[in-house]
């Protein structure tokens, strides 16, 4: 463990807590993409299949349980409890255009042609594009609530911090995982446009409103 990865995990944790607080406090899921949350649930389920078979540390297990638990709870809030506030018209990204290519790529490009490894690779590739339905929804509605912007900023920062973690681990431990790094770079690049808006607007107390 290193400071970059710890900050990355804390940023990820913060993003999930911000999202849950937004939903619980406002009792609304307006502006939140249920499709992105479904993709995140798929990512965590596919990545943490080894939850019960390989024990890394208490921290690792607790975080995995928390991530899986909260993402399914978020889906429950969106599609059941606060269903009335879910904006399905604007959450119209065709996720099959993500899942099929990512699934195919995981078969073709992986570290080892073994079931668990391919499923892990699929989760890595899928995570890098899982935010697209959410960003697409914001571009369609033309704006994002400030709390949703904080959620996205924390979520985007987590993988950016993981990139720093991989640089550190390369020099400190000689650890290098090309698949995770390339997917992490793609994932972080997808947030750049949003990061720019967040820093130039939200930090000055304005709301993010894209030209619709």
């Amino acid at each position: 463990m290193n400071i970059f990865r710890l900050c990355g995990d804390m940023s990820h944790l913060a993003a999930i807590i911000i999202l849950l607080l937004k939903m619980w406090k406002t009792r609304s899921v307006a502006g939140i993409s249920g499709k992105s949350q479904i993709l995140f649930a798929t990512v965590f389920t596919a990545r943490y299949l080894d939850l019960f078979t390989s024990f890394i540390s208490i921290y690792n297990t607790c975080m995995k349980v928390f991530f899986i638990g909260t993402v399914y709870f978020t889906i429950y809030l969106i599609y059941m409890k606060f269903k009335a506030t879910y904006d399905s018209n604007h959450d119209s990204f065709r996720v099959e255009f993500l899942i099929v290519p990512v699934g195919g790529l995981a078969f073709l490009v992986n570290h080892e042609f073994a079931p668990l490894e391919i499923i892990w690779t699929f989760s890595i590739y899928l995570e890098s594009v899982a935010i697209l339905p959410q960003l697409f929804m914001i571009s369609k509605t033309g704006e994002a609530e400030t709390i949703t912007s904080h959620y996205l900023f924390a979520l985007g920062s987590y993988r950016a911090l993981y990139l720093c973690n991989w640089i550190y681990r390369y020099y400190a431990e000689g650890f290098f995982d090309l698949i995770a790094v390339v997917a992490g770079v793609v994932q972080t690049i997808l947030y750049c446009d949003f990061f720019y808006l967040y820093i130039t607007k939200v930090m000055k107390g304005k709301k993010i409103s894209l030209p619709a």
């Binding site: 990820h12 890394i56 570290h111 290098f176 995770a180």
Partner: peptide, 10 residues
Amino acid sequence: EENQKPKDEL
């Protein structure tokens, strides 16, 4: 190549 090490990252 073989797995370099267990997946210790989240």
